[in-house]
Design a binder for these strands. Structure first.
Lengths: 226, 226
DNA sequence: CGACTGCTTGATGTTGCTCAACGTGCGTGG
DNA sequence: CCACGCACGTTGAGCAACATCAAGCAGTCG
């Protein structure tokens, strides 16, 4: 376990800012920091875990292969906490987490984490805020899956990467077509076809994993009307 | 505002049990209790709200008609808290809540609620647990919508009512076909057809809104394999 | 060079939506 | 009281959207 000073990274987390000094020292003593390369597994579903994972830097996918197919439930960008649900419930992770980009993660002992919640109302409040945000996002995902069809979903995914993740019209897709399909709940062939159509219609430029959004407005319309 | 003693209902909420006596008195002073009949609106989306709603008894649907169609996001059975996300974020409700069965709801002032979180770690922890459970359930909903087809979704809905809500193989569906479709993301015609097929195959007995599950095992299989 | 992986593209089949027709129960107003 | 509109439920026919199957192509690795 690699010891690090948690004080040095508090600015990256609303919740940690609320921890007082001696709590930060305690955190330092019960926290290990691990560097992941893309595609590495942070934790696997059905594994027992006694840690909360704090993503300090990077991009991670939460996924499951419950039903023989892999399904990506959501992406989560630093800074954020993972596996609260599993750990706080019955200490079994319900889902897997795999890095998509180089990621720096802190493993925090669940007992320390729980202690902080009990002792520090500000900290708890920040966690509650974050979970609430997650819930709203989950609802939106749910809406998208339920009523948008394939090209709307793909448009959504592209806009998501451009706006939420890379803040740029041009980016390297960190996903294969297969993964993109797993995420949006459509087949890899459909992803290919739709990207091809968008390319032909000059809505995007694509070359392998290289994507440039040429007509964001139109893409937005496609996303909206499903 | 109808004053009630919140001490008298603490047994119905894990979170409230953790409130200490003077907090319960404060809750009593900033809490109004309202009785709803089925189909009544508890709150509407896009409305400003400064209350957290605690469902003490009953059954409620969380829904939205953002995209011109009504979509039911989830059902929630007492006891549970509603609209934490909206209220804690920007005080605008992102979704509507409508009762399905007779419901008793408490409106709690958001400032009091926040104060409890800050002051009482046990209370905060219970809220965090509940939100975590919600997240796991949301993921399951998401999985269902993304990969199951219509008959799997209907099977799901029937099993949900039988197991989670009514604890009985026989029940009165609290939904019209339309609402059932809005919930599972399929058309009312498909719901009709599928229920008809299940009836013909002796998997269920249906007579209007009266449903009896005859072959739970088979229904489970249909739900599983999508 | 062959084996392999990931991507693309076309052909075919299935699913479930849309539209339309029709029956029923319920409330409203003449 | 009946006529009427209206929401809901059922059923059938046609069609659009996707999945699946199949083949081919480019890049990569041994």
């Amino acid at each position: 376990m690699q010891k690090t000073l948690c004080q040095s990274c508090i600015l990256q987390s609303d919740a940690a800012i609320k921890l007082i000094k001696n709590q930060l020292n305690e955190l330092t003593d019960h926290c290990s920091r691990v560097e992941f390369k893309p595609g590495e597994i942070i934790f696997k579903e059905n594994a027992i875990s006694t840690n909360v994972v704090y993503i300090q830097r990077g991009l991670v996918k939460i996924h499951t292969d419950n039903f023989s197919k892999d399904r990506i439930l959501r992406l989560t960008k630093a800074p954020s906490y993972l596996c609260l649900p599993g750990v706080l419930g019955d200490s079994i992770n319900r889902f897997s987490a795999t890095t998509i980009e180089p990621t720096l993660a802190c493993f925090i002992d669940i007992h320390v984490f729980k202690k902080f919640i009990l002792e520090n109302g500000d900290f708890a409040y920040q966690i509650i805020l974050a979970l609430s945000q997650n819930e709203i996002k989950s609802f939106q995902v749910s809406l998208n899956l339920a009523q948008k069809q394939a090209n709307g979903r793909v448009a959504d995914a592209l806009l998501y990467f451009a706006r939420e993740i890379y803040n740029s019209q041009a980016f390297m897709l960190p996903f294969s077509r297969q993964e993109l399909g797993d995420w949006m709940g459509i087949s890899r062939e459909s992803v290919s076809r739709i990207l091809g159509e968008f390319h032909s219609a000059h809505i995007i430029y694509q070359n392998g994993k290289e994507i440039t959004i040429l007509n964001e407005e139109l893409l937005e319309q496609i996303s909206q009307k499903g």
